[in-house]
Design a protein around this nucleic acid. Structure first.
Lengths: 222, 222
DNA sequence: GCCCATATGGCACGTCGTGCCAAAAAGTCT
DNA sequence: AGACTTTTTGGCACGACGTGCCATATGGGC
């Protein structure tokens, strides 16, 4: 993993990422797609890393340059929703209360807007059945919780109780996880009653109700 | 793993477990102790399974009969508190409201009562620093959440919304996890202000306040 | 064209985790 | 006690995992 500062193709401080970085991200998604199909077909345990690499058209050695573990190959699919969530939350209107912003961005990120997000949600439902992928699922949510914690901290005035912020991030992340697991267990469709969007909004609302973080109304201006 | 029914040493339907079972549990704890010391000294990554086995006085092959992964060796230490928690919750007074029982048993299980529980808490704080053990930490809490979910379901009248029960278990588990992580980050002692007991009680209270599961007061009689 | 940074593939290597089988240990009976 | 049965243990081999190393290929900047 090269340091960005030492790279000749350094990321511009503003604007979209470098060409090579976009290439790399694209390759990651291709590998993830191939891995998801194999995992869904034969199960993660019965799939070797070499098979994933071959299906993705790369060598085994290169595969391990993109993912540190074979199960991690599907992480981009499982993490897409969470990353979109944090992005929406960060970009949401400054005058919106934190809890309101959390719930709205969660509902928004759980709506199958584009075809890619819809695809990711259906893969999630499929892959959640595999017990061998539980650790990736948990790791993805742990990462999401940490990103969310940082984003919430940015909205709060400095000096806010760190435990309160951690609790809020944990509550919101657990809410989304439970909503998705419940949706995967039930046969509910991706939209309408019982959809992740509805379940997620309800779970976030209930889990964050008792938190003592919502005294201030909007985004703090540093 | 032999089926109990086919075993000559079948577990009695009531009373304490068989001698061999207690022996096995004792061995598990000895291995966990050895693993914890090695992990704390050199880090989990730099410790081989063979070293753990040797330190515990068993062969490598036998080690893998007690734990499926090398990192799992410390799971008994990390899981002890959670198991005690679920046990206390299940045994708590029948007329206690669920939320009250959850909070009290959590505080009780986070108190360093006997020397062994105190030991486990200090190991937890030490081992949480190792990023290679994050997955075990998450797995332990996922297991604890599932056990707690079953225990809560037993207290609720049949037909209670499954999502509500799942949310309650997730909220309580996340509360304890955050409390322990916060305690591990801070240098607070095991008792008094900032202790797991105080943090845990507060976290459970805040995270479960908004749940819609607490209409009935006590334990449901089936 | 050249130069240089990065990406890739192949190979070797140590570790991981498991199936298999024979030996040792422990429980159950007379 | 002894004989018998079940379980546990250790050793071995094996495929898979994940990484360090180096030579080669790729592609942008000059």
């Amino acid at each position: 993993m090269p340091t960005i500062a030492s790279s000749a193709y350094a990321e511009p401080v503003t604007g979209r990422p470098t060409l090579t970085q976009r290439r790399r991200e694209s390759t990651r998604l291709e590998i993830a797609q191939a891995a998801a199909e194999l995992f869904a077909a034969r199960g993660a345990e019965a799939t070797t890393a070499e098979e994933i690499a071959h299906a993705a058209g790369i060598s085994l050695r290169t595969f391990y340059r993109y993912f540190s573990e074979k199960e991690d190959a599907i992480a981009p699919l499982l993490a897409a929703g969470g990353e979109r969530w944090v992005r929406l939350f960060t970009e949401s209107a400054a005058d919106l209360p934190v809890r309101e912003a959390l719930e709205r961005s969660a509902a928004e990120s759980l709506s199958p807007s584009d075809a890619q997000a819809d695809e990711a949600m259906r893969w999630t439902r499929e892959l959640l059945r595999d017990p061998g992928l539980a650790s990736v699922w948990q790791r993805v949510h742990a990462d999401s919780e940490e990103r969310l914690r940082a984003a919430i901290a940015d909205r709060c005035p400095p000096g806010t109780d760190a435990l309160e912020i951690r609790l809020a991030a944990a509550a919101a992340t657990a809410a989304i996880r439970v909503a998705l697991e419940q949706w995967a267990l039930s046969g509910a469709p991706a939209t309408g009653p019982g959809s992740p969007r509805e379940l997620g909004a309800r779970c976030v609302r209930e889990l964050t109700e008792g938190l003592g973080l919502w005294e201030h109304l909007g985004k703090h201006v540093n």
